[in-house]
Amino acid sequence: MIPVLHLVMLAVILGVSFITIFLMVFERDLLKMIVLSAAQSTFYAIVLYILLVPDVVLAYIAVAVGIYTALLMFAVKKTERFEEA
C-alpha cells in the first residue's frame, strides 16, 4: 500500500519551495533574499521531517534557520545591500 497522503504533502511543499527558490535567485534586494532563504529552509525542514530523518532535521534547523541568516546579514551589513542588474 502506497501512502498517497505522504506523496501529496511532499509534492505541495516541494512546489512551494521551488517558487521560493525562484524568487530568491532573481531577487535584487539581498536582505529580502535572506528572508526568502529562511522560508526555503523551513519548507525543506518539513520535507526532511516527512522523510523520517530526525537527526538531519535537528542539525538542519539549527544551521539553516539559526545561523545562515545571521551570517549573511552580517555580510550584507558590512558590504552592499542591492545587487546590480
Partner: peptide, 10 residues
C-alpha cells in the same frame, strides 16, 4: 524534538 527546537529558534 524538531518541533520544539523550531519553536525555540524561530
Amino acid at each position: 524534538g524538531a518541533g520544539i527546537l523550531l519553536a525555540l529558534w524561530a
